[in-house]
């Protein structure tokens, strides 16, 4: 898009990302991180609690603004964009999954998945519904479509959240400890879904503290005190 950028085309790229919380004693959340997540790849971000994994993910997903540095989305810088454009970019190009599912409690599974599509408004009502059902079906959730989140198990809620993240067919999926609240079997299933998304050509970044799951990722980044460090060998 911008002529000045001579990077490989797709993917998500952090360039010298720094995020400092201002205050009497400024807190450095992310301290000069540069990384590239290739399209079609799944990147696991690991590190001890409080090392800045979530903060980095929020920056990569344009939910937060860096103190300095930039995030290149498919090669295009984003630091200078106004908040309306960043809102729009998130709507069109990013899907988020958080540790807590954040489903609207009054909306059915289907209606929750429809939220991003309705906000985007690119499809007709019937097209949206059939696409939402398709996504739910691919996640084995078609039968729960009319249930309320309160009627679902933890794994089902998280899969609904994944379905919502996929609603607008975004090239980037960012997940922050999506398996943190799940048992091992459900966690592995959700991780397998994320692998599948990457194989289908999306750029996926997953924050996790589960070393076993992280080991399955083609790309791995390890954070300590907001800095990238070499991945420690398993103890």
């Amino acid at each position: 898009m911008t002529g000045a950028v001579v990077q490989e085309e797709g993917g998500l790229r952090a360039v010298d990302l720094v995020r400092v919380l201002p205050g009497p004693v400024p807190t450095v959340l992310v301290d000069g991180v540069s990384l590239t997540i290739r399209p079609g790849s799944l990147a696991a971000i690991t590190g001890p609690s409080g090392s800045g994994k979530s903060s980095l993910l929020y920056l990569l997903g344009l939910l937060d603004r860096p103190t300095s540095g930039d995030v290149l989305v498919d090669g295009a810088p984003t630091a200078g964009l106004d908040s309306a454009t960043r809102d729009r970019l998130r709507l069109e190009r990013f899907g988020f999954v958080f540790q807590f599912h954040f489903l609207l409690p009054e909306f059915s599974v289907l209606d929750n998945v429809l939220v991003p599509m309705r906000e985007l408004g690119a499809l007709s009502g019937t097209a949206m519904r059939s696409r939402a059902l398709e996504i739910l079906d691919s996640l084995d959730m078609a039968e729960q479509a009319d249930k309320l989140p309160a009627q679902l198990s933890g794994g089902q809620r998280q899969r609904t959240a994944v379905a919502r993240a996929l609603a607008n067919d975004p090239p980037f999926i960012l997940a922050d400890e999506p398996t943190g609240a799940l048992d091992t079997r459900n966690a592995a299933a959700v991780f397998e879904i994320l692998h599948g998304l990457a194989r289908a050509g999306r750029t996926v970044a997953v924050v996790t503290h589960d070393a076993g799951l992280a080991a399955t990722a083609p790309q791995r980044f390890h954070l300590v005190d907001g800095r990238l460090v070499a991945i420690p060998t398993a103890a």
Binding site: D87, L89, F102, L103, E119
Partner: peptide
């Protein structure tokens, strides 16, 4: 507040 947070993160502008 949680619902509002997820709607905003999904890309819903403040005016909406």
């Amino acid at each position: 507040a949680r619902d509002i947070a997820i709607l905003r993160s999904v890309g819903m502008p403040p005016a909406t």
